[in-house]
Design a protein around this nucleic acid. Structure first.
Length: 136
DNA sequence: GCCAACGTTGGC
DNA sequence: GCCAACGTTGGC
């Protein structure tokens, strides 16, 4: 079991919409490093859902429902892939970026070191810590 | 609104 | 192959 974090601007695609849709293909990733992470995802992997830009908080937990497959929104023959994600549960208390930065146990968090990457790995202990901060 | 980080593009 | 120019992301 591996752990990940994906980012979305809530104005573009929000956690609320994700719940309403009961999951979604995670399309539109156009960065090779992010794509490599998508390719490493396996069904059942747990995924933190982060609202970037306007909210800057981890808001929920999702899981990988289907592994990487060609991104239907990309040109045929392109290297881009998408996984399917489905909701697991919201965080009772969203964890703001400032709280992630302030936590000594999260000093190594990939999100903090590479803020522009939209699909990031999370270590198991980091994942557990963020759930705890979020009230789970 | 600004700027840092960083990926991509294209001229040489 | 290098690097300047440029575009995008995302925090502040």
């Amino acid at each position: 079991m591996n752990y990940w974090l994906v980012k979305s601007e809530p104005e573009a695609y929000s956690w609320q919409q994700f719940l309403a849709d009961d999951g979604t293909p995670w399309t539109g990733v156009r960065n090779y490093q992010a794509r490599n992470n998508l390719n490493l995802m396996r069904p059942g992997d747990q995924v933190l859902f982060y609202h970037s830009v306007s909210e800057k908080a981890v808001v929920g937990v999702a899981e990988v429902a289907a592994p990487a497959a060609p991104d239907a929104t990309a040109e045929a023959g392109s290297p881009w892939v998408a996984v399917a994600l489905r909701p697991v549960q919201p965080l009772p208390r969203p964890v703001p970026l400032a709280a992630l930065k302030a936590d000594a146990r999260l000093a190594g968090l990939a999100l903090l070191r590479q803020s522009r990457l939209s699909v990031l790995p999370v270590q198991p202990d980091e994942f557990e810590r963020i759930l705890a901060l979020g009230g789970l």
